[in-house]
Amino acid sequence: MPAILHSQILRVHAAAVEVGLPAKRGALLAGLPRDLVATLPDAPSPDAQLLSDLDHLNHHSRLPDGSVPLEIWLTNALALCGYRHEAEVVRELLALINAPRAVPGSAVAHAAVPAPGTTGGSTYHINIQGSTIGALGAGNGAVISGMANVRSGAPSGSAQGAPAAQPTGASTHGDPGTKTATTSHFQSIYLSYGDADLSFTRRLHEGLEARGVPVFFREDHAPGGEKHHRTARKGINDCDRVLLVCSQRSLTDQRVLNELEETLAREARQGGAEVVIPVRLDSFVTSRWNPPTPDVVYPILDRYIINFEGTEHDPIKYAKCIDRLTGALQVVPGGRDNRPLGR
């Protein structure tokens, strides 16, 4: 059974050609098993080859690890598209592939994915025995991926008498002030960054959302009118993990340093829980970082730091870094719980 319709394959093919992806076949196939790539038939031109690859990957079954070949291709394509408007087509199809499918006898919460940058509410339908019995609405400011949720309690705005779906192992995180329900195989994450690194962080946010990670990205999710420190405190303590963008520009931003202190204080309250995940864009953090509060340095240098340096020109390295990051965020049944105590 194909992952998406042929008409959708034609749409993404047209977008990919517009961006020049036919010349980047190697990068598009990165992460796919070699034996699978070897079965892809040759085509007479780069454009035709891209369409042939898409068609065959669309009809290929899941890999032994459960991943979908077409999803891997689309994820690579999204990274290669950068900030071109054609990326929206790729993002839309990734959302379709990642959308959970109802199974008779199960309760599933799912949501439509609005376009990035919009603030429209998401609607979550609850299906039991294959029939919709209620809907949960999230107001303006809801996380655009439909991934926002809460740790406990019924969703706000739920239909009278309609229970919230909370399957076993569901991640429970919310955009501050938003209470909705969903299922995720990943821990939620708050992005801590300086405004000078907004371009990198937005791309990172989009890449994580495309893989199903619940993300709090203040540029899109911070409630209007709320003070910065209040939004940061809520996000840091409500999310499972905090990603720290380490660059000279971000690590000299006072707001980032304040967020780091809040995160480290949370780790201390939780008895040394591992909450912060550092990623670096240059060598500043390991060689020249000397903040006004030097006691924050060692707790960061004492961890493995994911190296995104140079990935703006290297999509293969970028995809590998995203893989490493999403691997760190995977929910492990029975694993350590990094959520705030008492929540």
Score class of each variant (00 low, 15 high):
residue 136 L to M: 04
residue 105 G to T: 11
residue 87 A to H: 03
residue 182 T to Q: 10
residue 143 V to G: 13
residue 106 S to Y: 13
residue 153 G to M: 05
residue 144 I to T: 07
residue 167 P to V: 01
residue 148 A to K: 02
residue 112 A to V: 04
residue 170 A to G: 03
residue 109 A to S: 13
residue 168 T to I: 10
residue 170 A to S: 15
residue 117 G to K: 03
residue 87 A to M: 05
residue 163 P to V: 01
residue 150 V to P: 00
residue 101 R to K: 15
residue 113 V to H: 02
residue 91 R to H: 04
residue 117 G to D: 01
residue 141 G to R: 02
residue 139 G to E: 10
residue 163 P to G: 01
residue 142 A to I: 00
residue 103 V to S: 14
residue 146 G to H: 05
residue 131 S to H: 09
residue 150 V to Q: 14
residue 129 Q to Y: 09
residue 137 G to V: 07
residue 138 A to G: 15
residue 151 R to D: 08
residue 152 S to T: 12
residue 182 T to N: 13
residue 147 M to W: 11
residue 167 P to Y: 03
residue 182 T to K: 08
residue 164 A to T: 05
residue 123 T to W: 05
residue 158 S to Q: 08
residue 136 L to A: 06
residue 127 N to S: 08
residue 181 A to Y: 01
residue 135 A to G: 11
residue 130 G to N: 08
residue 166 Q to F: 06
residue 169 G to L: 11
residue 120 G to V: 11
residue 158 S to F: 02
residue 120 G to I: 09
residue 87 A to N: 01
residue 169 G to D: 08
residue 119 T to S: 11
residue 158 S to W: 00
residue 183 T to F: 15
residue 106 S to P: 00
residue 107 A to D: 14
residue 162 A to L: 04
residue 133 I to D: 00
residue 123 T to A: 10
residue 83 Y to K: 13
residue 142 A to G: 07
residue 89 V to G: 01
residue 121 G to H: 03
residue 105 G to P: 07
residue 122 S to Y: 02
residue 181 A to L: 02
residue 132 T to S: 10
residue 159 A to L: 08
residue 143 V to K: 08
residue 140 N to C: 00
residue 126 I to E: 07
residue 150 V to H: 09
residue 165 A to W: 01
residue 171 S to D: 11
residue 148 A to M: 03
residue 134 G to K: 06
residue 148 A to Q: 11
residue 99 A to H: 15
residue 159 A to K: 00
residue 150 V to C: 09
residue 130 G to R: 09
residue 154 A to M: 08
residue 90 V to G: 01
residue 158 S to M: 04
residue 179 K to T: 07
residue 126 I to G: 07
residue 126 I to A: 12
residue 105 G to E: 13
residue 175 D to E: 09
residue 115 A to Y: 00
residue 177 G to D: 05
residue 182 T to Y: 06
residue 165 A to E: 09
residue 111 A to N: 10
residue 140 N to R: 09
residue 167 P to H: 03
residue 105 G to I: 11
residue 148 A to C: 09
residue 126 I to N: 05
residue 158 S to A: 12
residue 148 A to F: 01
residue 136 L to G: 06
residue 119 T to P: 00
residue 102 A to Q: 14
residue 155 P to R: 04
residue 90 V to E: 02
residue 104 P to T: 14
residue 113 V to E: 07
residue 143 V to W: 02
residue 140 N to H: 04
residue 87 A to P: 00
residue 138 A to L: 10
residue 142 A to H: 04
residue 106 S to K: 15
residue 154 A to K: 05
residue 160 Q to G: 01
residue 127 N to L: 13
residue 173 H to P: 03
residue 170 A to Q: 11
residue 116 P to A: 07
residue 97 I to H: 06
residue 83 Y to N: 13
residue 124 Y to E: 03
residue 113 V to I: 12
residue 151 R to I: 09
residue 129 Q to S: 12
residue 101 R to M: 14
residue 87 A to Y: 00
residue 104 P to S: 13
residue 178 T to E: 13
residue 95 A to R: 12
